[in-house]
Amino acid sequence: MSEPILELHGVNKSFGPVHVLHDVDLAVRAGEVTALVGDNGAGKSTLVKCIAGIHAADSGEVRFRGKPVHIHGPRDAADLGIEVVYQDLALADNLDIVQNMFLGRERGSAWLLDEASMEQAARQTLASLSVRTVKSVRTPVSALSGGQRQTVAIAKSVLWDSKVVLLDEPTAALGVAQTRQVLDLVRRLAEQGLGVVLISHNMADVFEVSDRIAVLYLGRMAAEVQTKDVTHGQVVELITAGRSGDLGLARPDTAVV
């Protein structure tokens, strides 16, 4: 088994009196899709935001390629090669695909952007992911469908020579065909050697694309298992009760807040 590219050890996070994450450990390996599952309020999105630098973790250690790192903002995470595709997409509707993909990291000098180079790079990235779903890379995002927006958001995350991509519920609002597209894209990211974290509520999606499953239960990491070693039922039990047979949190009362 390869060394994890991103490791979290004992991460804690509170919002005021609410203790959202308790000593969470997580390992993300290159070339694998790690599914992060859990019930509503289990802390999945918070964990992703801690990794992305949107929230600062209260305590705990983050290791990137074996070396401890400190992530204080979105820029730090981006510099390491950690990209996040958020549930609410974080695209600006009024900008076109190229402008969105390069937002915050435009090419060219500050006083004269290099539109040509950005447009070519955007098209290459979309082509490398076999995305043929957009008519023109100069289409404003407001004119795209949900699946196309998700595709753009994911393509944006791989544009930066990124190492780890975190996807927050990428298929939540999509139809069947569009979900298919996005899942194919997720698989392709892993095949390109990226470490992929997929947050999802949909067990079918999780079992289809993931290599490993990490289950959060009330802010604790209940289990981290190989997808092939578990069944649907076990994962659902882990999500709802925090344990399933030998798997999961040792004593149920520790999980009760």
Binding site: I54, G73, P74, R75, A78, V84, Y86, D88, L89, A90, L91, A92, D93, N94, L95, Q99, N100, L103, G104, R105, E106, G108, A110, W111, L112, L113
Partner: peptide, 24 residues
Amino acid sequence: NRTRYGRHIYAVGGNREAARRAGI
């Protein structure tokens, strides 16, 4: 239209949260 500053103005107006997450 042609400068980074202008692009960021449009981004902030279009989706402030997206702009913030893009490091603007």
